[in-house]
């Protein structure tokens, strides 16, 4: 099911930390917590990385990405499937 991200925007705030799952080329999963997910528009989010070495390696190697987000007011949980587009290291989005 496709979801308009703005309808679950509360979940991106990280009050209840989200989780990101990736897969290495051998099929081994990796899980990491996310402090925040940045809303870009209804079809795009941005994730900052600081300590997610394995996650980043897997994404760069072409792993599909899943997020598990939880609404801190009602407890609803959402699983999002993401596709990596690009990394930005400068500019308005980065800042």
């Amino acid at each position: 099911m496709s979801v308009r991200i703005e309808t679950i925007r509360e979940c991106l705030e990280g009050v209840i930390p989200g989780q990101i799952a990736t897969c290495d080329p051998d099929g081994m999963p990796n899980l990491a917590y996310l402090s925040q997910v940045q809303f870009i528009d209804n079809e795009h989010v941005a994730l900052s990385y600081q300590f997610f070495n394995r996650t980043r390696q897997n994404v760069i190697a072409g792993s599909p990405v899943r997020l598990l987000l939880t609404n801190h007011r009602i407890g609803a949980q959402y699983r999002l499937r993401l596709e990596y587009l690009r990394t930005e290291t400068a500019g308005s989005l980065f800042e």
């Binding site: 989780q19 799952a21 990736t22 897969c23 099929g27 081994m28």
Partner: peptide
């Protein structure tokens, strides 16, 4: 949290 991957490498996870 628990995660595993399918044949297409798409991960799934659950609490």
């Amino acid at each position: 949290s628990v995660a595993a991957c399918g044949a297409d490498r798409l991960p799934s996870m659950s609490r």
